[in-house]
Design a protein around this nucleic acid. Sequence first.
DNA 1: CCTTGAGCCTGTACTTCCTACAGACCGTAG
DNA 2: CTACGGTCTGTAGGAAGTACAGGCTCAAGG
Lengths: 139, 139
Amino acid sequence: MKVDNISVTPLRRVDVARATGCNLETIRYYETVGIMPDPPRSAKGYRCYDDAHVRRLKFVMRSRDLGFSLEEIRGLLGLVDDRTQTCAQVQTVAESHLQDVQEKIADLKRIEHVLSETVARCTGDAAPECAVIDALLEK
Amino acid sequence: MKVDNISVTPLRRVDVARATGCNLETIRYYETVGIMPDPPRSAKGYRCYDDAHVRRLKFVMRSRDLGFSLEEIRGLLGLVDDRTQTCAQVQTVAESHLQDVQEKIADLKRIEHVLSETVARCTGDAAPECAVIDALLEK
DNA sequence: CCTTGAGCCTGTACTTCCTACAGACCGTAG
DNA sequence: CTACGGTCTGTAGGAAGTACAGGCTCAAGG
């Protein structure tokens, strides 16, 4: 189907999955929990997605990947959806999210430090003594 | 109950919980999934723990804290239980996990950069235009 | 035109890692 | 003796998906 110059063939669920790398079923799941909007349906009830859906889903996936909960993502998406909010309100929410991220980085760095240190102490021998195990047992 | 010089009063579940900071129910859960061994029981069926249980549970909690899955911990515990295994095997598990952690840190730093930059570009006005929202929509 | 295969629909069950309760029982201190 | 805190089992719920079953639809190839 063509309108003038651009194609308006709607995207199917599998197209969205391929475009984003998201699991097919997860797309439906996000719909049921309100993270993704209910898409328009074809005459036969098929979901019809467009590029906006794909962009939104990519955003959700990146955020999940970085450890945001669906609840937090809902908050972030709220900023996008409700454009009547003031810039100041948005700034406040974004700043608090920034703080979360920075805390997460700090936590992970602590973990990284412990892990890399103990791994480095490993002899790698066939010996039954192991720095990693000792560290985990003693701490 | 005393034997010579040391107390052998068995630890109850709540004692183990307090000694480790682990949730009461989680202790039982770890038993059912085979992470913790079935402890000996009293005449009336009460679980009787000792210091070895506490140490093992601390190991598990610390590992969880460092982001190891229960499956990975099962592997690590297997190596602890069977000390005939090589140190190299432990090293392999820990190294692969370390890599995961480092990747996560890199991802978070990327998002931190973007977030802090866009927050800084915010005017803080009561305007409906906002650098943060624009960034979220375009990424 | 018919068949085939890929994709769609819904609903529900399973997964991981817990956490919380319900209902019944026990053990000790006051 | 009774109250309180602890134990037992089994089961339910929650977060964030993942997988499958049974049935429908659509487009392409023969």
